[in-house]
Design a protein around this nucleic acid. Structure first.
Length: 384
DNA sequence: CTAGGGTTAG
């Protein structure tokens, strides 16, 4: 960690940067080394470093450790509270996040815009409709803070998922800020869940006006048509994407083993241990099938026959990373994987079952949030 | 030079 040969010793500022990098990568081991370095060098009393540690541990999925640091702090400012609230939200402890939000006010620390980002995220992840609406109102009336498009987006998401599509649409139109493409996409996602094609197509109109060239818009459009089984329209959209040269991001997972980050992609055939990985994966699948695992085919958007779907789903990068984790760590050790896209329902089932059959905690950070799998259950509140 | 947030979809 230190470079004595050049007489250049990392200081507190260096550590702040390092912790941010660890948080971004989900590199818990390295983050822990930075933590030890901070303590050994007496940097640990600086409030910005304690706050950075809370964020790092939260973003690496170790909420207990983040909370431990939080509890040991004698001085807590708005950043401390916001970091803790966001950490609870992203790790699936929505109720705790709201409790913490109330507690900070009892302690006389006024929330700011970023605190509301955290607590409204908690409402979104926890599906807390009334709480979300109430907070959005209090934000303006009680604290004089102008909600931004993300704050509104959380409440639109919560309303939409609850099936209150009209109310969500009205909220977007009543905003004092301009709706962006993302907030329309949020509502479009809800239209897909509740199969509201009329509103869905109206929203696509708004999206095309704003920035129609984004891959995500077309993917959502695909989802709507796929969920009603209109494969002709799906094919049309795919053709359009091809013509415009629009590509979707390939799935990619990372796992940290012996202080090294291993990166795996969908259908990876370039990893030096690919033979072992695929062997382990097949062995795991056999074990899981005995326990009742059935490949979930509905998460594929292609109109293939079931057999092909079953095969295609075997090689998602998170499964490869989990297999590498199983074969590289001692029995019972936790497996931590970071994913660049959202986990699919099949890999979610796979991890859930693996956590019970192999008696391992599996912690997956996806594009959205953390999934803590333990004894056949997941901490997440989503519909799977 | 430094601390807290981030949506939909694949």
């Amino acid at each position: 960690m230190c470079n004595p040969g050049r007489g250049c010793k990392p200081d507190g500022v260096t550590c702040v940067h390092l912790l941010r990098a660890c948080a971004h990568l989900g590199a818990l081991d390295f983050g822990e080394r930075v933590h030890r370095y901070i303590d050994e060098n007496g940097y640990g009393n600086a409030i910005n470093l304690r706050n950075s540690l809370i964020a790092m541990y939260s973003k690496c999925g170790n909420l207990d450790k983040a909370f431990q640091i939080f509890q040991q702090m004698t001085e807590r400012n708005v950043v401390t509270w916001s970091a803790m609230i966001s950490g609870m939200a992203m790790n699936g402890n929505g109720e705790d996040a709201i409790e913490a939000f109330k507690e900070m006010q009892r302690m006389g620390v006024p929330p700011d815009e970023q605190t509301f980002t955290g607590v409204l995220s908690a409402c979104r992840h926890g599906r807390l409709v009334d709480e979300g609406l109430r907070l959005l109102e209090h934000m303006e009336m009680e604290f004089g803070l102008q909600p931004n498009v993300y704050h509104y987006g959380c409440v639109v998401d919560v309303l939409g998922r609850a099936g209150l599509l009209d109310q969500a649409y009205k909220l977007i139109n009543s905003m004092r800020v301009e709706p962006d493409a993302t907030i329309w996409r949020t509502l479009l996602g809800a239209c897909r869940i509740h199969e509201d094609f009329a509103l869905g197509e109206r929203i696509i109109g708004h999206l095309i006006e704003l920035k129609a060239q984004e891959a995500g818009d077309y993917v959502l459009l695909l989802n709507i048509y796929a969920s009603i089984g209109n494969w002709n329209k799906v094919a049309d959209v795919r053709k359009l994407m091809k013509e415009k040269g629009i590509q979707t991001t390939p799935g990619c997972s990372t796992i940290e083993l012996d202080h090294k980050i291993h990166e795996l992609v969908v259908d990876d055939d370039s990893h030096p241990r690919k033979k072992e990985i695929y062997e382990t994966l097949r062995e795991i699948e056999q074990q899981l099938k005995i326990a009742g695992y059935v490949a979930e085919i509905s998460s594929e958007l292609h109109d293939m026959d079931s057999k092909n779907k079953g095969d295609a789903l075997c090689y998602h990068s998170e499964k490869l990373a989990i297999a590498l984790g199983v074969l590289s760590t001692p029995p019972g050790a936790a497996i931590r994987v970071a994913n660049n896209v959202r986990i699919c329902i099949d890999c979610h089932n796979f991890a859930k079952l693996l956590s019970s059959v192999y008696s391992r905690k599996v912690i997956i950070r996806d594009r959205n949030r953390f999934h803590h799998f333990e004894q056949g259950h997941c901490s997440c509140n989503d519909y799977w």
